[in-house]
Amino acid sequence: MQATYLQQRHRRSKGFSLIELMVGIVVAMAAVIVVMQVFKMSEGARRTTTGGDDAQTIGAIALTVLQRDLRQAGQGLTNPNLLNCDLLLRAGVTLNGLAPLTINHADIPAGDAGTDTLLIVYGSGLGSPEGDRINTQAGAAIYSVSTPSAFRVGDLVIAAPAVRQAPCGLLLSNVAAAPVAPNVTVAFGTAGVANGTLYNWGTTPRVVAYAVRNGRLTTCDFLTQNCRLTTAANWAEVADGVVSLRAEYGRDSTLPPDAVLDGYDQTTPTTAAGWNCILATRLVLVARNGQLESSDVTASAPAWAAGASAPIGLTGNWKRYRYKTFETTVPLRNVAWQGVPTGC
């Protein structure tokens, strides 16, 4: 009896066997794997959701920035004596083909493959956007105008002759001294502009380019930077995650013109009359979710307006990302205010 009791007590004190430990470890590992899988799925869903929110926010901000400039496009430069002229912005820097809005301007390097660039120009002067008549001229740098009070020291101005020259080359200068009626004195004048027009672009005009580079919407101010170079020193980032920008001109193609928009295309006008028939622009921005998925989640590239001549094209491993498109049409109101153009 005593021996049997001791043997049973000895068997009860041995603890877990190796098989029991291995089974326990396997069960624990299975539980950990299940927990990790649930966590992975939850984290992936969270990143997809927050990434979509980021794309929504980034695209909305980028589109707002573009619309702000596009609504001002053409302020102070829609007169035929200015349109499509070459403008010397500063020593050694000439903007070729002056216009309110240019898609894929020759002076702006191309952005990412399958994207467009925009060049937007407008002034901020206090005077008439149609300019001030130059009654007489004293030398090259003093203009006698009808309303000198519309000019201030530091305003950027353009003096254009009464008859458009060929080739049409203009100079951007600044008001160098407080106007003394009826004279406005500039730092660098243009000879032979008596009976012409002095256009006031104010102290903060914009000659600004936009391009998508390396998956980012970037901008360059042509008045202060060399926008012909694509270095970071010249192009500032507006929004990360914008992978495409496409745009088209809204054109009045009726003959004779009737100031009604008839269609869209990417054909850039080559004459002042042609620019007068560009009434709007439509564009699309494509923002990308920053979450790279483990498999393809986008079967086909995003699309925009029906009949658009510039389809959205994406490069690289684009199918493993999600996208949001932001599309709008912006009337060029400073062109529309000119009334029905005389020709296109």
Rank of each mutant, 00 (worst) to 15 (best):
T4R: 10
R11C: 13
R11F: 10
L18H: 01
L21V: 10
V26G: 15
A28M: 10
A45Y: 08
T49D: 05
G52N: 08
A60E: 06
A62H: 02
L63K: 15
V65A: 14
R68A: 14
R71D: 02
Q72C: 11
A73Q: 05
G74N: 04
Q75E: 12
T78F: 12
L83Y: 13
L83E: 10
D86Y: 07
R90T: 14
G92E: 08
P100M: 07
T102A: 01
D112V: 04
D116L: 00
L119P: 03
V121N: 03
V121P: 03
S124C: 09
G125A: 07
G127F: 03
P129D: 11
E130I: 12
I142R: 13
Y143C: 06
A150G: 02
D155N: 09
V163F: 13
G169W: 08
L172N: 06
N174L: 11
V175T: 05
V180Y: 08
V184F: 04
F188M: 15
A194T: 10
A194F: 03
G196W: 00
Y199K: 03
P205D: 10
A211Q: 06
A211I: 01
G215F: 00
T219G: 02
L223V: 09
T230G: 08
T230Q: 14
V238C: 00
A239C: 03
E248I: 06
E248V: 03
Y249D: 04
R251K: 12
L261V: 00
D262Y: 05
I278E: 13
L279D: 00
G290Q: 09
Q291V: 00
L292V: 05
E293Y: 03
S294R: 09
S295E: 13
V297L: 09
A301K: 01
S309Y: 08
S309I: 10
P311M: 01
W318T: 13
T329N: 08
P331Y: 02
A336C: 12
Q338W: 05
P341T: 07
